[in-house]
Design a protein around this nucleic acid. Structure first.
Length: 268
DNA sequence: ATGGTCGGTGTCCGA
């Protein structure tokens, strides 16, 4: 049987309704079969499903709330199954998943950003972030051995490597790159023997970012980025990984998201 | 060391 190509993009769009032109441009650039979006910021009834259907994405699982968070998977390929899961006892729309007919299960996460102060005793948002990661670790550790073909994508809001941030030293006490968060992300990675696919193609010695703050005067010249967006696969899919592309130019588009799309191509 | 900008909302919150 000939392997088919499946292409999966993750993108924190920071409002799906205001980013429809950007989504069309992303499709031009990367032509993904699946779009995994975060921060859609819209309730399900107002989600622009029509626009995605017009672009060829007829299958979907969405979980949205007013103003905040929100995740979605839009797909050209039908789902065998799909669902929404709550974390930390909150129905705050941070995870949707879908299993394709070839058995590949795609999990799309929006991990809490964690606020400004990296101390769980002082900052409830940081405590929530650590609890969320701990719950993910337990969830994937408790699932059956990673013989299954799983994909985990999303805005994990942690930049784990020194080369995943513009200055390791300057960001050691900045939420997203603190040692306690990096430890949690490492534990999550170990929980199901996940493989960080972007780093197969861009070695850890090289910088790689997927997010640049809106607040920089000139994001491109300053290049004070962080790699917050990730695409992981289980070992059963390692040999299927063909390429990973981070669409840095998207940060320079008109009315950009502060995150850029990251796309994985699988041969399965 | 500080402040800077978005998006959705509603006269601020979260990132």
């Amino acid at each position: 049987m000939t392997a088919a190509t499946t292409t999966i993009t993750t993108w924190n769009v920071n409002s799906v309704r205001i980013r429809l032109d950007g989504i069309a441009a992303l499709i031009e650039a990367h032509d993904p079969d699946l779009l995994c979006l975060q921060e859609t910021k819209v309730v399900n009834d107002s989600f622009p499903l029509d626009a995605f259907e017009a672009l060829g994405y007829r299958h979907s699982i969405i979980a949205g709330m007013k103003s905040y968070n929100g995740v979605a998977i839009l797909s050209r390929l039908p789902f065998a199954d799909s669902g929404v899961r709550d974390w930390c006892g909150k129905a705050d729309c941070r995870h949707v998943w879908a299993t394709l007919e070839n058995g590949v299960e795609v999990n799309n996460f929006y991990v809490p950003a964690g606020g400004d102060v990296p101390d769980a005793a002082l900052n409830d948002k940081f405590a929530h972030k650590l609890r969320f990661l701990a719950e993910m670790i337990n969830w994937f550790a408790a699932r059956s051995a990673p013989a299954n073909k799983l994909v985990l994508v999303g805005d994990l809001n942690v930049a784990p490597l020194e080369t995943d941030v513009w200055s390791h030293k300057a960001l050691l006490k900045v939420v997203s790159h603190t040692p306690i968060e990096v430890e949690a992300l490492d534990a999550l990675k170990a929980s199901h023997r996940w493989i960080d696919t972007a780093r197969i193609f861009t070695p850890p010695e090289e910088t790689l970012y997927s997010w640049w703050s809106y607040r920089a005067r000139d994001w491109e010249t300053a290049d004070r980025g962080r790699r917050l967006d990730h695409i992981w696969v289980t070992p059963a899919l390692e040999d299927a990984v063909q390429s990973v592309d981070t669409l840095r130019p998207a940060r320079g588009w008109e009315r950009p998201s502060d995150h850029v799309p990251v796309t994985l191509t699988l041969s399965v």
